[in-house]
C-alpha cells in the first residue's frame, strides 16, 4: 500500500512548462519575393527589410544577413526527473551584392514558424507537420 502511494506520488506530483523565445522580427515573404537580382540595390533592400543583422565582406562583393530565431521549449518536471526539449527554427535571408551594391543573388529559408512544443522522443521534422505550418503562415505560399 505504501509503495503504491509512493509510486502514485511520483507519477502525479508533476508539472509541465512551456517556454517561447524569439530574436528579431519575422522576415516578410512578400518582401523576399520583391527582390530582383540585377535590379534591386542594397539601399532598396534595407528600405524593405530594415537593417541587416550582419554584413560580410567578400572581396569586391558583400552579403547581408537577416534572421529571425524562434525557440519553443516544453518540459515535464516530476519529483525526481526533469525531461525537456527545445526546438529552434529560423527565418534566414542572405542577399549578395556586387561591387556596385546591386543585388546579384539571394537565398531565403523561412521556417521560424515550424518550431514545435514537443518532448525529446518526438520527431519535430516530419514533412506533414512542416507543410501544415507553412499553410498557416500568411504570404508564404504564392
Amino acid at each position: 500500500m505504501r509503495a503504491t502511494f509512493l509510486i502514485a506520488a511520483c507519477v502525479f506530483l508533476t508539472s509541465c512548462a512551456f517556454v517561447r523565445g524569439s530574436e528579431n522580427e519575422p522576415i516578410d515573404p512578400a518582401a523576399v519575393r520583391s527582390l530582383v537580382p540585377g535590379q534591386t540595390t542594397a539601399r532598396e533592400v534595407t528600405e524593405r527589410l530594415g537593417a541587416p543583422s550582419s554584413i560580410v565582406e567578400l572581396g569586391n562583393r558583400s552579403a547581408y544577413r537577416y534572421d529571425h530565431l524562434v525557440t519553443k521549449g516544453a518540459g515535464l518536471l516530476a519529483i525526481l526527473v526533469i525531461v525537456a526539449n527545445a526546438d529552434s527554427r529560423a527565418d534566414r535571408l542572405w542577399v549578395f551584392f556586387d561591387e556596385n551594391d546591386v543585388l546579384t543573388h539571394y537565398g531565403a529559408t523561412l521556417s521560424g514558424h515550424r518550431g514545435q512544443y514537443a518532448f525529446p522522443w518526438e520527431d519535430v521534422h516530419e514533412q506533414e507537420d512542416n507543410d501544415a505550418k507553412d499553410a498557416e503562415r500568411p504570404g508564404l505560399t504564392k
Binding site: 525526481l80 526527473v81 525531461v83 525537456a84 527545445a86 529552434s88 527554427r89 525529446p120 519535430v124 521534422h125
Partner: peptide, 26 residues
C-alpha cells in the same frame, strides 16, 4: 533505500535531467 531516495527527491536534493536541444533542419 527507496525512502532515502524519495526524501532526497522531495526536498529537491536529488534530481535527474534529460534535455534534447534541436536547432535548425538537417
Amino acid at each position: 533505500l527507496l525512502s532515502c531516495l524519495l526524501l532526497l527527491a522531495l526536498t529537491s536534493c536529488l534530481s535527474m535531467n534529460f534535455v534534447r536541444t534541436r536547432f535548425g533542419e538537417p
